[in-house]
Every structure is written in C-alpha cells, then in structure tokens.
Computed example of a mutant assay.
Amino acid sequence: MIGRLPPKSFCLIRHGETTANRDGLIAGRLDVPLTEVGRAQAQSLSARHWPSRYQLFSSPMARAVETCTLGFPAQDFQIVADTHERDWGIFEGRPIAELPARAGRPEQGEDWAEMIDRVAAALQDCGRRAGDKLPILICHSGVIRAARILAGQDTTGTRPPNATPIFFNWTGTGHQEAPRDISTPETLRNF
C-alpha cells in the first residue's frame, strides 16, 4: 500500500558525492564515505539561505550524517532510521550499469513498493517532529525518488544532484516539487 506525505512543505537533500558515486557503483546500503568533492558540496550548504525556523533530520548512513554535519555546522539534528537508502541486495557494489529495474524486489534486496511505504512513514514522522518548522532531511537518491512518486509524479525523474536542496511545496491539496534554486530569502517566505 502506498503511503502519503505529510501535509506540509519539506526539503530533501541528497548527501554529498561518495566514492561509489565517483566510481559509478551501486552503494545502496553500503556505508561508503564522501569524497573531497562531496565534503566541499556538503560545506556549500552552509552558505545557502535557510528559513529562520527549520528542523534538521538525517539518514543514519555515514554519508548523510557527514553531509549534515558539514552543511549545517553546530546545528542539532535528529537521525531518522527509515530514511536510509534502498537495499539493492546482490547488486550492491556492482557497476551502476547493472542496476536492475526500480520496480519489484532485487534479489536479496528491498521491494520498491515497500521502500515507498517506508519513506512515506518516515517523512510523516519528520513532519510531526518538526511541528511548525520546515523539515529538512539529508538523505539519498532513492528517498527523493520515492518522495516524487508519493507527491503524485508519474516518474521518479532523474537522479537528484548531490548536496542540492529539493523543496516539496505543500499547495493545500498536494505537493509540488519546487525549483532547486528556490532557497533565496524571498522565496523561503513560502516555506
């Protein structure tokens, strides 16, 4: 059963570049480190304009936690266990060219529909914990793709860029993925 997103705006940020991203490998649940480029990407988040009231969350995976720590220095954040990346089973560590179809369950891995439900529940939890603040979650490509499906998009879209905010604006009846360059002082008043 496909879950629902929280009835509020939120922001998802994919972690900085990892060694697996750089080398074209499927990382999924492998806890791969950030590259130097990834660390610089993460640090660049600290120079962006953010709303005055937000609640920061992170996937438990090291690449997300490090991105969160570098991008939001000295900010408290909460770990949300169910925002980890998809388990690609026997495909973990293989070249990205061998990535199986997203739909279904890769051998010894996590079913796509189950991941969507997991992500829906985790984002609902973040929304509740954030209260009247904007939830900002450092997560993974698969989490963002699941959120796109939950927002009613027809496809998962292209792979989200590393360390780039993606806003899901609550319209009152659903979510609209907002442009990635929306984090300016003027546009953040809407979040």
Rank of each mutant, 00 (worst) to 15 (best):
T158L: 13
M1E: 03
L134Q: 04
D82E: 10
D132F: 10
A121C: 14
T158R: 12
P185E: 08
L70Y: 01
G24R: 09
R145E: 11
T158Y: 11
F57A: 08
Q78M: 06
T67M: 02
R159H: 14
M1D: 06
L45S: 04
L5N: 01
D31Q: 00
I138L: 12
A47V: 12
C68N: 05
R14V: 02
R4P: 01
R128I: 15
A113D: 10
W50K: 03
G109Q: 00
D31N: 11
Q75Y: 10
T155C: 10
D125G: 12
R53Q: 13
G24A: 08
E66V: 11
D111P: 10
D31K: 02
A101T: 14
I166C: 14
N21L: 08
I79G: 01
N21Q: 07
H84S: 06
I79F: 02
G109A: 12
F57N: 03
A27L: 00
Q176M: 15
K8W: 08
L5T: 01
N162G: 05
Q153R: 08
A81E: 11
R39S: 04
L30K: 07
N169T: 15
L56M: 09
N169L: 15
G104Q: 05
G3L: 07
F10M: 15
H15M: 07
S52C: 00
P165M: 04
P185N: 12
V143K: 02
T171N: 13
E98H: 11
G93M: 12
I116N: 05
